[in-house]
């Protein structure tokens, strides 16, 4: 049951942005943060690894999304709760 923090780089087409935001808001797996410039932080709660991958691809296919960075992934199984922070160039 991975929970990931994603950073979406959006293009500046406002129409595409509205569509993208609406699409993301419509799905319960996502929680959207506040957009800073071109960057939108998103928390993604996926049922399993495979879904996680598919959702990632789906996000990347949204009209305003130019890039998806994975900031953190939490593998939420009861035995070993590990949070990994990937090295993202700040």
């Amino acid at each position: 049951m991975p929970i990931s923090g994603l950073l979406l780089t959006l293009n500046d087409n406002t129409v595409a942005r509205s569509e993208t935001l609406a699409a993301l808001r419509a799905r319960s797996e996502f929680e959207l943060g506040d957009c800073f410039g071109s960057w939108l932080p998103v928390a993604m709660d996926a049922p399993d690894d495979e879904d996680s991958r598919q959702l990632h691809d789906w996000i990347a296919s949204l009209p305003a999304v130019e890039f998806v960075d994975v900031v953190s992934v939490h593998f939420d199984d009861d035995k070993s709760p590990v949070t990994e922070i990937s090295e993202v160039q700040l």
């Binding site: 506040d34 932080p41 960075d69 900031v71 949070t83």
Partner: peptide, 27 residues
């Protein structure tokens, strides 16, 4: 606990977004 993890994930992503945007806080 789950909610906490979700919020942490969002917070981490938000801090990176802020850093990249070079804007301190807007929201």
């Amino acid at each position: 606990r789950r909610r906490f993890v979700q919020l942490s994930a969002l917070a981490a992503a938000t801090s990176v977004a802020k850093a990249r945007a070079g804007v301190n806080v807007l929201a």
